[in-house]
Write a protein that binds this DNA or RNA. Structure first.
Lengths: 240, 240
DNA sequence: AAAGCGCACTAACCTAGATTAAGCCCTTGT
DNA sequence: ACAAGGGCTTAATCTAGGTTAGTGCGCTTT
């Protein structure tokens, strides 16, 4: 993610694009602006006319949809370095919310236009990020559609660990995670109650624990094998 | 879709891009080539190095993923005028298969490159198509994650009817549909057996029938209301 | 014409996960 | 200091959908 993020910064600094609006300035380059949100804030909802590309620079974000009956489903979690923009707020009526304190870099304007007008390195980076998001969502669909609750939950924890690039210490991985069990439920297509049960199972089976905001996976490889987790959908392959 | 398709054709005819490879030629313009597949053929699988944008010009196509245990899930159905390319075969390891006899227009090469090099009207059309596909997939996730089997199934039938632009005759809609119950199951995250049960229910409830390749919805509006179907995710909004 | 196969259909039974309904611990606000 | 609310936890019960195990029909193939 880190390298990725740097690419975006360079693309922005070099770029024609200067994000406008009333934002807080940060850093040396006057073209780099950030927007800051608190946990729970809505960053974008489908109705709004505020179209933009969002580049997450710190914090956790969820993109999802609300149903008429009050239920919610989370399509994807966005971590630092990730981008959201095409087909998110506009057509899909997605709702983007901050799960923790978040800073976001915003490229205002219709994403389509941005993409077409942007200098090549930027649009290329944006497209790659979109493609990666698509891959995550495809895998997410597999989870919800065809995996059991335990497998599904473990899969998500593994995905997060990989995306955060946590390096295992003798097989063990630990990271902060601001998600509530309700968030997990909405992402996994389960009930919060059942998520709790599953978490208990994973804990008692010695696979992974999630307590007071910290995820701990005892043995990444064992768990990965157990739930048939294949991280290749997360990585950019060299040849592209 | 029809208008959409014309846009693509115009973009192609005007364009720098001339699809290469050993394809059958059709039509007056020597730059327009088509590839033809029979029902059941694999159009693209993740492993292949044959990257391309695919524009469906006739027939039904499914894009999905195969699991190691042999299960399959269908991410999205592609109908004439639809495009597939970004994040599909490359990262997501999706598998694209023909559900009926299909003709496809192919823009070979890495989709990212294509998009960035293509003349503006073409890349714009491609991006819109991608955004629309994303919106469909988001809605699909809602179905699988939070809707009951009947609601989910009816929702899919309605989506197909809308996308095919079938005009209702006094509320009733009829169209040919090459899907098997197993295809439906893989798209809905259900079992073929259960799909059968659901179809029976819809039939006996007087909502919709699907028999020998023909879908018939008795009263589109009633069914749409019944399952809270909101077609807006399928349409391009004017302001974009 | 028989065999084989893919697809639709059904019934009997079973389990994963939903629902309901508590109780508990913290944090936040008054 | 108390109340209120959000989040976690658990147990008891219920049900939607999965599993298994068929049947029958209409094709291709030989």
């Amino acid at each position: 993610m880190a390298g990725e993020f740097e690419d975006f910064l360079k693309a922005l600094e070099a770029g024609v694009l200067s994000p406008g609006g009333n934002r807080r300035m940060e850093g040396a380059n006057p073209n780099i602006w950030r927007r800051i949100y608190a946990a729970g804030d809505t960053i974008a909802d489908g109705d709004e006319n505020k179209q933009a590309f969002f580049l997450i620079s710190s914090g956790w974000v969820a993109s999802g949809k609300m149903l008429t009956n009050g239920a919610r489903i989370v399509l994807d979690f966005l971590l630092p370095g990730d981008v959201i923009g095409i087909g998110a707020t506009e057509w899909a009526r997605e709702i983007v919310t901050a799960l923790s304190p978040v800073t976001i870099m915003e490229l205002p304007g219709a994403p389509l236009e941005t993409l077409l007008k942007a200098p090549k390195p930027l649009s290329s980076a944006l497209l790659k990020s979109i493609a990666r998001r698509n891959a995550r969502i495809a895998e997410h669909m597999v989870s919800i559609g065809r995996r059991g609750a335990v497998e599904r939950t473990a899969h998500l924890l593994l995905e997060l660990a990989y995306r955060l690039e946590i390096k295992p210490e003798k097989g063990r991985v630990r990271f902060q995670c601001p998600l509530t069990q309700a968030d997990l439920a909405d992402a996994l297509g389960l009930t919060a109650v059942h998520v709790n049960r599953v978490l208990k199972e994973l804990r008692e089976g010695g696979f992974a624990s999630f307590r007071s905001g910290v995820v701990e996976i005892q043995d990444v490889l064992r768990l990965a094998e157990f739930v048939a987790f294949d991280a290749s959908y997360l990585a950019l392959r060299a040849a592209r």
